[in-house]
Amino acid sequence: MAIWYKYERDYSDETLIKVAGELEETVENAKEILLGGLLNENRVDLYRQYTDDDGEECTEEAHSDGTSDTYTLFMKNELYTRLWEAYEKPEYTERKMLSQRLGYCFECHSVFYIVHNDLDEYGEPKKKPIKKMMYTDIATDHEYSSANTAHNKCEKALEKLRKAINDLI
C-alpha cells in the first residue's frame, strides 16, 4: 500500500505496472494485493467505546453478527446437525454422566444456571457456572459400585463421541 500511495493511489495501467515491478510480482498479483489492502482499509470496528452517565468507560458491540451469507449459514447448520447426530451416539446414561462430569445442563446444554435470589449490582439475576462433578458423586448418583466404574463409563462415552465425530469428517 505504501508503494501505491507513492504513486498517489492512481489505478491506471502504467501505475499498476510500476507497482508490480517494485513488488516483483505480476500485474494480476499486484491488483489482488492492492484489493486486499483496500478491503483492510475499509474495515469497521466491531466495538465502540463511550462514557455512560456515571462517567464509566463502556464498550459495546456496534454491529451484531446478522450474517445472511447463505454458504456460511448452510455450513453452520450442517455442522450443528452432524454434531447433534454424533452427540446422540452414546446411550442416555452415558450422555447424562458426561453432562455431570463436564459441567453442563443435560436438558438445555448450557454451562451456567441463573440464581434469581442472588442479584448483581444492576438488579439482574446472577449467572453461575455449573460445577463439574467428581467421579465418586457420579457413581453415587447412578448407583455404581465405585468411582472407577463411573470413570470408565465416561471414557467409553467420550470415545464413542470421538469416533462419531471422526466418522463425520
Rank of each mutant, 00 (worst) to 15 (best):
Asp120Met: 06
Leu161Pro: 00
His109Ile: 13
Ile169Pro: 09
Cys58Ile: 07
Met133Asp: 13
Glu155Pro: 00
Arg43Thr: 01
Cys108Gly: 11
Lys153Leu: 00
Lys156Leu: 06
Ala147Trp: 01
Pro90Ser: 05
Ala86Gln: 06
Glu94Met: 06
His142Cys: 06
Met133Glu: 13
Glu88Cys: 05
Ser64Ala: 09
Cys58Arg: 15
Leu161Val: 08
Glu94Thr: 00
Lys127Glu: 11
Gln100His: 10
Ser12Pro: 14
Lys18Tyr: 04
His151Val: 03
Ser12Phe: 02
Leu38Ser: 10
Glu8Phe: 14
Ala20Trp: 09
Thr59Arg: 03
Cys154Asn: 12
Lys156Trp: 00
Leu98Val: 01
Thr149Leu: 04
Thr59Asn: 05
Tyr47Ile: 15
Lys96Glu: 05
Trp84Val: 06
Glu25Pro: 11
Asp69Cys: 05
Asp10Leu: 04
His142Val: 07
Val115Cys: 15
His63Pro: 03
Asn117Asp: 15
Val44His: 03
Glu56Leu: 09
Val19Thr: 02
Tyr92His: 12
Glu124Ser: 15
Asn148Ser: 04
Thr93Met: 14
Glu143Gly: 03
Ala86Trp: 00
Asn29Ala: 13
Gly66Tyr: 11
Phe74Met: 10
Glu22Val: 12
Arg101Glu: 14
Glu91Trp: 00
Val111Lys: 15
Leu38Ile: 13
Val111Tyr: 10
Lys132Ile: 07
Tyr50Pro: 00
Leu73Asp: 09
Met1Tyr: 10
Arg82Tyr: 00
Thr93Tyr: 15
Thr59Cys: 10
Glu121Asp: 13
Asn42Val: 13
Leu102Ile: 01
Pro129Gly: 10
Val111Ile: 11
Glu32Thr: 03
Pro125Ser: 13
Tyr11Pro: 15
Lys160Asp: 00
Arg162Ala: 09
Glu94Arg: 11
Ile3Met: 04
Leu98Ile: 09
Asp118Thr: 13
Ser110Ile: 07
Lys76Ala: 11
Glu60Phe: 05
Asn148Tyr: 05
Glu88Ser: 07
Lys128Val: 14
Asp52Gln: 08
Met97Gln: 01
Ala30Cys: 09
Val111Ser: 15
Glu121Gly: 01
Asn152Val: 03
Ser99Trp: 03
Leu98Trp: 01
Ala62Gln: 08
Tyr87Cys: 10
Ser68Pro: 12
Asp52Phe: 03
Lys31Cys: 06
Tyr104Asn: 13
Tyr80His: 14
Gln100Glu: 14
Leu102Glu: 14
Ile17Leu: 14
Leu83Arg: 00
Asp118Phe: 08
Tyr7Asn: 07
Gly37Pro: 14
Met97Cys: 08
Cys154Leu: 08
Asp52Met: 00
Glu22Met: 12
Lys6His: 01
Glu14Ala: 04
